[in-house]
Amino acid sequence: MDWSLVIGNAAAELISPTTAAYALAAVGLAVHFGYTGLLNFGQAAFMAIGAYGFAVSVLYFGLPFWGAVLASLLASVVFALILGIPTLRLRSDYLAIVTIASAEILRYIVSTTSLASVTGGAGGLSAFAGEFYAMNPFAEGTYLFWPFDVTAKDLWVRVVGWSIVALATLLVFALMRSPWGRVVKGIREDEDAVRSLGKNVYSYKMQSLVFGGALGTLAGIIFILPRSVQPGNYGTGLTFFIWTVMLLGGAATILGPVVGSMVFWVLLSLTDGLLQGLVNQGVITFLTTDQIGPVRFILIGLGLMALVVFRPQGIFGNKKELQFNG
């Protein structure tokens, strides 16, 4: 087994744009669930809005890069309002049902054949990031050191992606120390108590939903910049991966989602490389290389269960802060 290849691939995941996108989406989810106590099971929908909002704006409406980013952010605000208006006054389980349902609605709509001229149907969309790469300030060549050596194009995506992650985490850090953050944390602990202090709980919940959703949308844009848009990516599986990432790091922590995302992707890559190597060398005889993909997700699922049982607060979490129930 080629150890340097296995470890190199795993380490490269540390800074990959996919990791950044998952981290950003998990930061948004941490604003929803970790800080405000909103059970959002539709983070994949916000990412889909980022991805499709951006790609459709560029390809179909011919908007420039910044226009497309703004358009998808606007779409995500509208989407969050649509989700929030009927459900945020009700018990938290209603929001959970409506978010997961609307995420699926969105996925059906973008993959339907009757809209294929706009959304590309099941085939998705590609070749929309030209303007983004045209802004690349790095000259051609190879940058950084093993195992992070990347081309100028890859470096540009990574720099932009991780800068946005850093800005978003700083913003969330500042927000949660502000009076606004104290109110939403109060809502998580006891909604009625906050209401009796004269705060408009509904409005604060709505602001939190919109803000976390906007982070999810930015994550969706980062996610698609290095690849094409595929409707199959935005199923409930994506939502649950983001939940895994957030719970792994710690729900109500600043750095938790970022580190959780790194751990998640490094582990996925590492288990893949190790299992591939072991099967190829004949150490594991009861699996074929085709079966490794699903098997590593089984392992991740088991790991998540073990995490919830043995360390429910995540890597960074504070057990005292986790006494709330959704």
């Binding site: 009927p86 049902i97 409506v98 699926e104 609605i105 993959s111």
Partner: peptide, 21 residues
């Protein structure tokens, strides 16, 4: 379209929650 039939049911769900939660 038949590939949107599940989406239709989920939209009804959201509408019902709006008027009769």
């Amino acid at each position: 379209p038949s590939d949107l039939k599940f989406a239709g049911a989920l939209i009804v769900l959201i509408l019902v929650l709006l008027v009769r939660p």
